[in-house]
Design a protein around this nucleic acid. Structure first.
Lengths: 140, 140
DNA sequence: TATATTTAGTTGTACATACAAACGAATAAT
DNA sequence: ATTATTCGTTTGTATGTACAACTAAATATA
């Protein structure tokens, strides 16, 4: 029978997810929000005027989830929304832009930290493997 | 700069987690509960009398999370708890035991499904890689 | 033996995330 | 042109998960 947990991709993936999320939360703590919000803000800063659909696609999260994230960033005055037909375009505020550096630093700290443990090569390879597998699972 | 998302293990891991969790939820739907509850029940059936600490360690989740899971299984009359000093031992009920087969079938369906997409070899290797990396990150 | 520390579990609270249903705008079909 | 369909977004609701603070039991230390 073996250990049905360690053989199950559902379990092993979620286990890694919990570990790396914990680490990411710690490194992003100084920014005042969690990693997903950080990355979302970076996306908006890089491509001002993205629609919510585009953002949700890039982050690979459900539209409703993105709505919630954007709402929160808007409440904190880090982004603004403008309706455009059925779409909604999102732009960073000046306030939001000033956070870019701090978020990048948090992201760098996170990378350095896990690369030190796993090795840079291994970490890069693993990430690539995860992207490839997810792409396949989602194409299905 | 590259794509900061696909290079970030935090992001790529959580992305896979969302994909595989969705798949697992679908396959476990006929059992009436979600994959984690299924696996937890299998653990309890395999090792009746495990303490909550042992179960939380095996599932690699926070003790508080396990408390919540067990509470729910208990409300559904699938397990019972007996206090033993400061520990709590968990046993499956007869009701719980009858579910074992159905959970195993769900688990098998999940495995077959993702192995068909990724290839059995690749899937096994990936799972091993995830276990190894998580072990390293947690040893830290 | 009395006190301090560690350990297991619980409770309150919070957050990321999803799905389903609803809604309005855009596009296609008749 | 009217109707039907698709598409992007929002809202209600639910779940998995965690942390911090707490309680109670066990162990170690004084």
């Amino acid at each position: 029978m073996g250990d049905f947990l360690k053989d199950c991709l559902y379990f092993t993936t979620n286990r890694l997810s919990r570990a790396i999320t914990k680490m990411a939360d710690e490194e992003f703590a100084p920014t005042g929000f969690s990693p997903m919000y950080g990355y979302l803000l970076l996306l908006v800063i890089r491509d001002p005027g993205s629609t919510q659909k585009q953002l949700a696609d890039q982050l690979d999260i459900a539209p409703s989830t993105l709505t919630r994230f954007i709402e929160k960033l808007e409440r904190k005055r880090l982004v603004i929304r403008t309706a455009q037909g059925k779409s909604v375009r999102v732009y960073p505020t000046e306030n939001g832009k000033t956070l870019e550096d701090e978020i990048r630093r948090a992201s760098n700290r996170l990378h350095v930290r896990y690369e030190k443990i796993l090795g840079k090569e291994t970490a890069d390879l693993l990430s690539k493997e995860l992207v490839r597998s997810t792409d396949q699972l989602e194409a299905e």
